[in-house]
């Protein structure tokens, strides 16, 4: 195995394109090193992007935030303005692993691992985040929900690498929230995750995005669930409809972390609870 730490994304793309065997990009490394250890992935090349200038930066852009590919959970959550705009995204990322993992784990890495149970991804999807992708043909921006195509599969082409994540302008009267269910209080992979981002017009929900994790092969953007609460002030009927649509959208598996029945039911419960928090935040 080769280890390379290029000083630009151009160089990173060149290295990735030149590799005949298997290559892995190292951002925080909290998934890649586990895979190496287990022998489930045996790459020929590791490209460590953390020495590329700017990858640890969070910068204001068009009223939103551009987050470098190597920004860790610790760095993200230390950014007060971003956390004020997108508390749900910040909290979702903060839920990943331990204090120690937070010192390394990145939004970009969480997205690229493409686990259906990734905590930060539903929050980013609900927020309408995009990923900037660089390859040999230049750069493109892609919606976060279009990155993962199945468990541990991504839509990136050979040699492509995500250079940053963009969280759009929060705008007035908006709020977001992410909740996950785990058996313990920490250190578990989400059995179900639910993120809601919404804006208010007075007491009524003007717009909403609802995203679910760990209930399907990919993180879901559930339009029906959003429609269930748009135009309402989260009255009981709207909440019941939100829960029902969220549960109906689930296509989970039974595994060591939970059953189909459990995941389906909990998705509805968490969607309601997350919507309530997002609503309260939007009210300010």
């Amino acid at each position: 195995m080769q280890y390379q730490a290029p000083d630009s994304f151009d160089a990173a793309v060149t290295l990735l394109n030149a590799e005949q065997g298997m290559a892995r990009v190292l951002a925080g490394g909290t998934d890649v090193l586990v895979q190496l250890r287990a022998g489930t992935v045996e790459p020929d090349l590791i490209v460590d992007i953390k020495r590329i200038p700017g990858v640890h930066d969070i910068t204001a852009e068009d009223g939103g935030w551009r987050i470098g590919a190597a920004v860790s959970g610790v760095e993200l959550n230390a950014h007060a303005d971003l956390c004020a705009d997108w508390p749900g995204v910040a909290e979702a990322h903060d839920l990943i692993g331990s204090t120690q993992v937070q010192g390394r784990a990145t939004l970009t890495g969480n997205l690229c691992t493409a686990s259906p149970a990734a905590d930060s991804v539903p929050a980013m999807v609900a927020a309408g985040a995009t990923a900037r992708v660089q390859g040999s043909n230049g750069t493109r921006d892609v919606a976060v929900e279009a990155v993962g195509t199945g468990p541990f599969k991504v839509s990136l082409a050979q040699g492509e690498v995500i250079t940053s994540i963009f969280l759009p302008a929060r705008g007035a009267n908006g709020g977001d929230a992410y909740l996950r269910f785990i058996p313990r209080t920490e250190m578990d992979i989400a059995v179900v995750g639910a993120a809601v981002s919404l804006t208010l017009d007075g007491d009524k929900v003007a717009s909403a995005r609802v995203s679910l994790g760990a209930v399907a092969p990919t993180v879901l953007l559930v339009e029906g669930a959003a429609n269930a609460i748009i135009g309402t002030s989260l009255d009981d009927a709207a909440m019941d409809k939100l829960a029902a649509t969220a549960s109906a959208a689930c296509n989970p598996i039974s595994d060591k972390r939970g059953t189909v029945e459990f995941r389906t039911k909990i998705a509805g419960v968490l969607a309601k609870r997350a919507a309530k928090i997002a609503y309260d935040r939007a009210k300010g």
């Binding site: 280890y3 190292l26 490394g29 909290t30 090193l33 586990v34 250890r37 590791i46 460590d48 331990s98 204090t99 120690q100 993992v101 010192g103 390394r104």
Partner: peptide, 8 residues
């Protein structure tokens, strides 16, 4: 603070 098992 990090896990040194997750750092090359």
């Amino acid at each position: 603070v990090v896990c040194s098992c997750l750092v090359l």
